[in-house]
């Protein structure tokens, strides 16, 4: 394996470890920090009434997580498409000289 490929895999591993370690070793609810901030506001300012509510609210947690997955999937699809297109472009631009003999008719 090339050294730069190894470094890339180590980067992926580090990100996975950073996410996994808290789940394994920290006791917690793992609720969203956005929600915790809402709670803190309600505690310190009990008289505050949110004056506007979301125009659309996903009807259940399942649908909400589905929409989040959709968001990630669309994004990942576009990023993946870019890398595929760029790799192909680079390979074609390198010209016939670089290609394996069996590639050329």
């Amino acid at each position: 394996m090339k050294r730069s490929t190894l470094v890339n895999w180590l980067l992926v591993l580090a990100v996975v470890a950073l996410a996994a370690i808290p789940v394994l070793f920290v006791q917690g609810e793992f609720g969203g920090s956005d929600g915790l901030a809402e709670q803190a506001i309600t505690e310190s300012h009990p008289d505050y009434e949110p004056w506007f509510s979301s125009i659309y609210e996903p009807p259940s947690g399942e649908i909400e997580s589905g929409l989040f997955a959709l968001q990630a999937a669309i994004g990942a699809g576009v990023v993946g498409y870019y890398f595929g297109a760029a790799r192909t472009k680079r390979r074609l631009a390198r010209g016939p000289a670089d290609r394996h003999p069996e590639d050329t008719p």
């Binding site: 996410a19 793992f30 920090s33 997955a69 968001q71 990630a72 699809g77 576009v78 990023v79």
Partner: peptide
């Protein structure tokens, strides 16, 4: 799209929240 992906990923953290 990268921002689209990353902002959809709720990741657990050391404080016990995500």
């Amino acid at each position: 799209a990268f921002s689209f992906v990353l902002s959809a990923l709720k990741i657990p953290s050391v404080t016990g929240s995500c």
